[in-house]
Structures are given as structure tokens and as C-alpha cells.
């Protein structure tokens, strides 16, 4: 694994993503979700909303890095809030 040049933050990041995907799978198996329409202009499943939330989070972090000197945890908290809003009402 040395060639993959792991660092603790990136390992935690990927562990988080893996955990998130496992949790979503377990959720879907235990209580299957369906397509529905919220405030987003398209019908979405839970997985779609997670994908949209993650995409918004990635671009949110890039915008903060590109346009401001703010610390990145601000973007992370903002992304988490957006993710919850999209998952619940999207």
C-alpha cells in the first residue's frame, strides 16, 4: 500500500465515504426508498440525493478554496447542512 501514498486525513475521508455507502445500502435493504419529488426540479431516489449532496459539497469546498481565505471547516459544516436539506426535502 506504500505506493498509494496514504495519509491519515485521506484515509479518514475514504473510510467516511465507504461507511456512508454501506449505511445507505443497509438503509435501502432495511427500508427500501422510492423515487419522489421535493424542491429539486427532478424526481430523485435517496442515492440520487446523496450524489447531488456530495457534488454540491465538492464544489462548495472548491469555491471556498478559490474565492476566500476562510478555513475549510466552514465549507464542511455548510456542506453538511446542505446535504441534510437535500436528503430530507430534495
Amino acid at each position: 500500500m506504500g505506493w498509494m501514498a496514504w495519509t491519515l486525513p485521506t484515509a479518514l475521508f475514504f473510510a467516511g465515504i465507504a461507511l456512508l455507502l454501506s449505511a445507505m445500502t443497509a438503509w435501502q435493504v432495511l427500508s427500501p426508498g422510492h423515487e419522489r419529488k421535493g424542491f429539486l426540479p427532478l424526481t430523485t431516489t435517496r442515492g440520487d440525493r446523496l450524489f447531488i449532496g456530495l457534488l454540491v459539497a465538492a464544489y462548495g469546498h472548491l469555491l471556498v478554496l478559490a474565492l476566500t481565505d476562510w478555513p475549510l471547516w466552514g465549507a464542511s459544516i455548510g456542506s453538511l447542512v446542505v446535504m441534510i436539506i437535500i436528503m430530507k426535502w430534495g
Binding site: M4, A5, W6, T7, P9, T10
Partner: peptide
Amino acid sequence: MTVVNYSVQDI
């Protein structure tokens, strides 16, 4: 994943 690891380091 390797690219993500590289992107936060000076190698």
C-alpha cells in the same frame, strides 16, 4: 484514491 492521496502531498 491514489490521486487523492497525491493531491494533498508534496512528493
